[in-house]
Amino acid sequence: MCPGEVEVPEEVRRRWEEYEKRAREIRRRMADWDFIRSQPPRIRAALELYVETGDLRLAQRISGLVLEEFVELIKKAGIRTGL
């Protein structure tokens, strides 16, 4: 199967967008912004990206940490996982 062949159906895409909109609001509310702003630039950028997108893998890569270390950091920043 060729890459790019799959298209996300409109109804599914809309459902995901709605979910992400609600999840983003919750992450923004939970986040300890003082903690996030006190972090080194790379970590701060990764945490901000996670709050805005919920994209754990991309944020983890930006942080330079392994997954469990990054998840621990997310929780220290007041943000619960699962969204």
Binding site: V8, R13, L58
Partner: peptide
């Protein structure tokens, strides 16, 4: 993983 990068609007996978 490569395929996940080729699909718009989804979060990308990693190997694990």
């Amino acid at each position: 993983v490569r395929r996940s990068y080729a699909i718009a609007n989804i979060r990308k996978l990693d190997i694990p």
